[in-house]
Design a protein around this nucleic acid. Sequence first.
DNA 1: GATAATTACATCGCGCACGATACAATGATA
DNA 2: TATCATTGTATCGTGCGCGATGTAATTATC
Lengths: 145, 145
Amino acid sequence: MSDKTIDHQMLENQLCFPLYAASRLVTRLYQPLLEQHKLTYTQYIVLMILWQYDGASIKQIGEKALLNTNTLTPLLKRMQLANILERVKSETDERLINIKLTDKGWQLKKELSCIPKQLISQTNYDTNNAMQLKNLLEYLISQLK
Amino acid sequence: MSDKTIDHQMLENQLCFPLYAASRLVTRLYQPLLEQHKLTYTQYIVLMILWQYDGASIKQIGEKALLNTNTLTPLLKRMQLANILERVKSETDERLINIKLTDKGWQLKKELSCIPKQLISQTNYDTNNAMQLKNLLEYLISQLK
DNA sequence: GATAATTACATCGCGCACGATACAATGATA
DNA sequence: TATCATTGTATCGTGCGCGATGTAATTATC
C-alpha cells in the first residue's frame, strides 16, 4: 500500500496513540497492587531506581526516570512523609540532596518482589513479544532522549 | 539466558518503564507543535476522534480514547470554551451529550495536517520499526482492554 | 576576591488521569 | 404505574507531568 493512501490524521494510523493508551493501561494494571502499599506507579519507578542507586541525588534520579525536579520534589516529599526515604544534604556540595532509603524503603523491596510475576501471570502476554516490544521501545527512547 | 537470572525488580528489566517513558517523550515531541494552536496532546487525540466521528457522545469518545468522563468532561468544556466544539443534548435520550465540531474545529483539521509529517521528519525513525512497534502495542492493548 | 555564569533544587500554575461518589434520565419488572 | 436497576454525565480529591520562574550554592573569569 502506498504511503499516500494512509491518512495520518486518523487515530488508527497513529503510533503515538497506542503508545499513550498502552502506557496508561499498564499503569492501571499496577495500581491495585501498588495501592495496597500506598504507592503510586511513579513512586514505584523511583523506588526501583533507589534500590539500585541508594543515596542518588534528585538530579540523578531524574536522569534515570526521565523526570524533572518539578515532578520529583513533591513526589519525594510525599515518600519522605510516608517514611520511605530521607533527604540528606550533601556535605561536599550543599546544592545536592541525596535520597537515602529508610528501613521501610528497603522492606518494600521484599514486599513488592512478587509484583512482576503477578503481572506476567495476569496478562499471559507472550515473552517473545514482550522482549521485542521492549527493544523497539528502548530504541525509540534512545532516538528521542 | 535463564529467566531466573533476570532481576525483575530492576528498572532495566521492566517493560512498563520504557512504555511509560516513551509515551511521555513522544508527547513532549508533540507539545511545541500543538501549543501553537493552544491544544494539549489529549485534546488532539479527542480532535482526531471527532474528525472521524463528529457528533459522538462523551461515552463513545471515551471508548475510543480509553478515557473516562472524569477526564473528558472538563477537557471537553475547555475545548468548548476555546470554541472548538459544541455540546448538544440528544433529543432521543437526554442523558446523552453529543459533541459537535464547530467550524474552528474543522479548520484545525487542515491546520494540523502537517504535524504527522513534521514529527516523522524530526525523528527519522525507521518506518518498519514504527509499524512493528504499532502492531505489538495494539496487540498488548487488546490483551489489556 | 568581586562579578558573572552555571548548577541543583524548590515553587507555582495548569491540565490531565482516575478512583470514588452523586445524580438525573431511562429501562425493566412486578 | 410505582419500584428498582442501569446508564450517561458531572463533580471532588489526589497525584502526577511539565513549562516557567525563583533562589541559594558553586564554579569560572577577570
